[in-house]
């Protein structure tokens, strides 16, 4: 038998791409270190997992001292929960560069294991943090991409401008929009239940809005529907709006951030709502992070936080089309 030749032993990313990655990561670190933001590390493996119905945690098992019969541990989908515990314990502003893991996500812009920069700035609301992020990303891309000044647009304005439909009407208007654009029932996105307003919003967002966002500049979309608040504060009003934002560049979602919810009972209710939806949808149920709830009850300082997708940032800096080209060993070669 001759040894089988496996060309896929080679990295997917070129050496130049690895050098670009190192340069961008070191610039991000330098920027945050200069601002006095403390770099921290938190566990990748945790007893609890994100409850968000659109996030699927990878689970593994630990068996050994302390767990003779073995116990389930989840690979985090982001370091949000333990970092908030650090904030509640008085860490001040912190950041972390780490891997995050999401089951079920693989494609041109997705790898189930990816690099996140998670950053919490104490005392900032979401608008203040958006300004800092524009400076951080602008600095990391300096000399690589020539960008116009960053802009902000509300979620509603973005829908009206690029898709011509108001996301705060009912699902029927969005279904009608999808139908008129050849995306609607019966056999395609029709598998989305008519009552799944956020699902229809996501259909319009991904097909008609996102591809137009951030052409030649950073664009922050903010003021999301309250139903998409995740862990953001909700500002009362008609309609109530989540103090959440997303950053786009060249049609690619680069970051997601919140003016962080600090209300422990409200967080508990959101966890329970998520878990109930998981039950209805037949998704895996996960344990609530009671330690995070306790941390919020003890007092989370007013802060805003963001998670920035570093692989996508490098991809855009390099003018690459797919995330695989900036990863040494994407899923297929891992």
């Amino acid at each position: 038998m001759t040894a089988e030749y496996r060309p896929d032993w080679r990295p997917a990313a070129s050496t130049g791409m690895l050098q670009l990655r190192a340069r961008i990561v070191s610039r991000l670190r330098a920027f945050l270190d200069n601002q006095g933001v403390l770099e921290v590390e938190t566990p990748l493996l945790s007893h609890c997992a994100a409850t968000d119905v659109h996030l699927r945690s990878l689970a593994t098992r630990y068996t050994g001292p302390g767990a003779p019969g073995g116990r389930t541990l989840y690979l985090h989908t982001s370091p949000e929960y333990p970092m908030k515990r650090l904030l509640a314990a008085g860490s001040g502003s912190i950041y972390q560069l780490c891997k995050a893991f999401r089951d079920g996500e693989s494609g041109r812009l997705h790898n189930p294991e990816f690099t996140l920069l998670e950053w919490y700035q104490v005392g900032d609301d979401h608008h203040a943090l958006m300004g800092r992020i524009a400076a951080l990303v602008g600095d990391a891309l300096y000399g690589l991409l020539d960008l116009a000044p960053a802009e902000t647009i509300t979620y509603r304005e973005a829908f009206l401008h690029y898709a011509g439909v108001d996301p705060f009407t009912d699902a029927a208007a969005l279904i009608d929009w999808a139908h008129r654009h050849g995306l609607g029932p019966p056999d395609t996105a029709g598998a989305l239940p008519a009552g799944d307003l956020d699902g229809w919003r996501d259909l319009v967002l991904t097909h008609a809005v996102e591809p137009n966002l951030g052409r030649g500049r950073l664009v922050f979309v903010h003021d999301y529907p309250a139903s998409q608040a995740a862990l953001a504060c909700v500002r009362p009003g008609i309609p109530p709006l989540a103090e959440r934002f997303e950053l786009y560049l060249e049609g690619v979602e680069l970051a997601n951030g919140y003016h962080e919810l600090a209300d422990a009972p409200e967080l508990g209710r959101r966890f329970d709502t998520d878990l109930e939806r998981r039950r209805v949808l037949g998704l895996a149920t996960v344990p609530r992070d009671e330690r995070l709830l306790a941390a919020l009850a003890a007092g989370l300082p007013d802060c805003s936080g963001v998670a920035i997708g570093i692989d996508r940032l490098i991809m855009l800096a390099a003018g690459a089309r797919a995330i695989d080209s900036v990863l040494a060993f994407p899923l297929e070669r891992a």
Partner: peptide, 14 residues
Amino acid sequence: NEFVKPGKGQAFNR
């Protein structure tokens, strides 16, 4: 076949 998904949203295949 393209996998499309907002970070905190519904996943689609185009």
